[in-house]
Design a protein around this nucleic acid. Sequence first.
DNA 1: GTGCAGTTGCACAACGATGTGCAATGTACG
DNA 2: CGTACATTGCACATCGTTGTGCAACTGCAC
Lengths: 205, 205
Amino acid sequence: MSAMTTGNTSRADANRRRILDVALAELLRDPDASMDQIARAAGVVRRTVYGHFPSREALISTLVDDAVHALAAAHAAGREGVEDPAEAVARSVLAVWHIADRYRLLVALAQRTVTMQGIRERLAPVRKSSVELLQRGLDQGVFSSALPAPALAYVHEQIMFAVMEAVNDGLLPPSEAGRSAAVTVLTAAGVPASLAGALVTRLDG
Amino acid sequence: MSAMTTGNTSRADANRRRILDVALAELLRDPDASMDQIARAAGVVRRTVYGHFPSREALISTLVDDAVHALAAAHAAGREGVEDPAEAVARSVLAVWHIADRYRLLVALAQRTVTMQGIRERLAPVRKSSVELLQRGLDQGVFSSALPAPALAYVHEQIMFAVMEAVNDGLLPPSEAGRSAAVTVLTAAGVPASLAGALVTRLDG
DNA sequence: GTGCAGTTGCACAACGATGTGCAATGTACG
DNA sequence: CGTACATTGCACATCGTTGTGCAACTGCAC
């Protein structure tokens, strides 16, 4: 048990990954899932999980960190060197969606678990850059909303969650979801539906 | 202790209400708040809470039932005898907002607690009527969206939550929030921003 | 096969939460 | 005052979870 944390056997690595994968799904189903539930679902014993992660919090932290990093990277990459706010928003939504599709469950978890505090804190930089972008669009008149930019950023975020939830519930095919999410976000920001549709279609070809 | 549940003293009633009020706030701060936390926050002893509610689940159930009933009533009353889908949506959002303002905390709680299953089930009829209304609007061409009506209903719901969260976080004055929520919901449904604004202003005078 | 890292199974202490029992205290109302 | 009911404070059993310790087992590599 002593070298479990340092050593790197193929078996150990595979287990570690499986535990992370399963924990993701299990924690979504029940944010308060116990270490035992997670371990059993992963096909190992509780004690083994503690061999890989020193505590429950460490496990969740790893999960959250991975997701947030991937998400922030996609978010930044999506709008790199794009001046038009509408296009930047569309690109970033599509980019985020692409990777979020794998983390969809975790991101959805974010809004209902107690760990939300921690997640929102870590997402703060992403949200900040969103607010800036939205503000720019509002200033230029590309966007128009009854809400100030910071509140609009909340709406932006929640729309993403809503579309993810719709996919999870089978109301929407995953293939179209990204485009739909982008169009809906733009529409909510006051971009005419036709323009939003055309823009996203152009970007997602 | 035996007659605590049946008897109706003014004191007992006041306590019961205070417990419910405080539990609302406390459970939002921490969905896993213990009976002891709630009791202390309400200025009573844990044992007293059990005098009014036989179990933790019963307490939460009461809270949820109250909120859902009020919400469903407002939702239905809002669109009573209105044929124009846009106006119906605007009216119902405003009506729901008005009462939700009191239950804002609980409604926000709905999206992050484990009890979510139960809440979503109970909200099913409300959502169903929302889907019908949205579908009608899409058919008539009053609305336009990249999403099918059921998914759009999710977006509708989440936008409400987003605006509530914005108010909770001080990003938006409560006085304007209702109007803003209504306009944003309409905008996301594809109604041009100017039309949405005019309509809501007319209704909320 | 010998050894070593990972895994297992069990045992344990510690903690916090739930729900209940009961005697004592407080308080409204006739 | 005295009755009735609400509240309190404490005790208790029970349960689930976390994190740790340790000995035995498994499988892979050398």
